[in-house]
Simulated scan of single mutants.
Amino acid sequence: MLAIVCPGQGAQKPGFLAPWLEVAGVRDSLVAMSEASGVDLIHHGTESDAETIRDTAVAQPLLVAAGIIALDPLVGAAGSGAGPQADLLAGHSVGEITAAALSGVLRREDAMRLVAVRSRAMAAAAAAEPTSMAAVVGGTREEVLTAIQEHGLTPANINSAAQVVAAGAKERIDALSAAPPAKARVIPLQVAGAFHTSYMAPARQELEALVAQLTASDPHPQCPLVSNAAGEVVTEGGRYLELIVNQVAAPVDWEACMRVFADRGVTGILEVAPAGTLTGLAKRELKGVALMNLNTPEDLDAAGGFIREHGSAVDRVDAVDHDEEN
């Protein structure tokens, strides 16, 4: 049982797309996705520095494009997406757009249009007033949530049993950092604003207007999407669009997504580039589940073997192909 997961903002690194340009077809794909998003993905993914790609309007399109080009050599750029290869697909925050593109729920051009509007709208909302986010690591869940609430903040990301990200006004984040919950550390994050909170309401309105112009397909029947919205298992394209609009101003519950993986008997988790964040959380939360990071073309052979080993959907696809040949 295979889950393919897609990282969120903060996972990007300077030059991380450079190795992929050596793979056949990747440059053309990046050019097309650059046109759709209005962002020069090749330049920013190979030459821009860390500060430049920290910009929300740059980082988010880069991340979606990276996940697409990383998996393309394994599932086929012109094929039916990762659905037949995996049993579940999920993404953290903006990674949900990557997952939708990989599954075929969104055409990749529409996915890039969506992430372009999302990223610019979120950046604009963040610039309206000084807000920030901080990871609260350790402590007990009840005490951590109480402390976040007492400081007038929102638990914007519930990443694992040991990590909750608080978001809100910058001075309140500073106050939480100065008085952390018992046995917990507060780590300020280098982000532009309080994402996944009510501060992002203007961005939500912009997304509503765009989504009305998009058409979403249903996920592959054997590979639903697992949503950040309390781990809801999404089997309809229309429902995906509703959730992705709400998501910008609502908490990301990645812990709930991991519970779905456990409940469904996932044996392997493959994280697409730039990988490591979500497999790191799974390493602590999902003991015994095999993990694979697909970061560079050098990982492709191992990733292909990992998919064949854990993707029960592959057996179904092979069986269909065999029947068609006969």
Score class of each variant (00 low, 15 high):
2 L>M: 11
6 C>Q: 02
6 C>N: 08
7 P>T: 12
8 G>M: 12
9 Q>N: 04
11 A>C: 11
11 A>L: 10
13 K>G: 01
16 F>C: 06
17 L>N: 02
18 A>E: 10
19 P>R: 08
20 W>Q: 04
20 W>A: 04
24 A>G: 10
28 D>F: 10
33 M>W: 11
36 A>H: 05
41 L>A: 11
43 H>I: 11
44 H>W: 06
50 A>C: 06
51 E>K: 13
51 E>M: 10
54 R>W: 00
54 R>Q: 07
57 A>Q: 13
60 Q>N: 12
64 V>Y: 00
68 I>K: 00
71 L>Q: 03
83 G>D: 07
83 G>H: 08
89 L>S: 03
90 A>P: 00
90 A>K: 04
92 H>D: 01
93 S>C: 07
95 G>W: 00
103 S>M: 03
105 V>M: 01
107 R>P: 00
108 R>Y: 00
114 L>F: 02
117 V>R: 12
120 R>D: 03
120 R>Y: 02
128 A>R: 15
130 P>D: 12
131 T>M: 01
132 S>M: 06
133 M>E: 02
133 M>P: 01
136 V>C: 04
148 I>D: 00
148 I>N: 01
150 E>H: 13
156 A>N: 07
157 N>G: 04
163 Q>S: 05
164 V>S: 08
166 A>Q: 05
172 R>V: 05
175 A>P: 04
177 S>D: 13
178 A>D: 13
178 A>V: 13
179 A>Q: 14
181 P>H: 10
185 R>T: 10
189 L>F: 04
189 L>V: 06
191 V>F: 08
201 A>K: 15
211 V>S: 05
217 S>R: 14
218 D>N: 14
219 P>C: 10
220 H>Y: 15
221 P>M: 14
224 P>E: 12
230 A>M: 13
243 L>S: 05
245 V>G: 01
249 A>K: 07
252 V>G: 05
255 E>S: 15
256 A>T: 12
256 A>D: 09
260 V>E: 12
261 F>M: 13
262 A>G: 08
265 G>R: 07
269 I>F: 05
270 L>W: 05
271 E>L: 08
271 E>D: 03
272 V>F: 01
274 P>F: 05
277 T>M: 04
280 G>S: 06
280 G>A: 06
281 L>F: 15
282 A>G: 11
285 E>S: 15
286 L>D: 03
291 L>M: 02
291 L>Q: 01
292 M>L: 08
296 T>C: 05
296 T>I: 07
305 G>N: 12
305 G>K: 15
306 F>W: 07
307 I>F: 08
308 R>P: 00
310 H>A: 08
311 G>P: 03
312 S>R: 13
317 V>K: 10
319 A>H: 11
321 D>I: 15
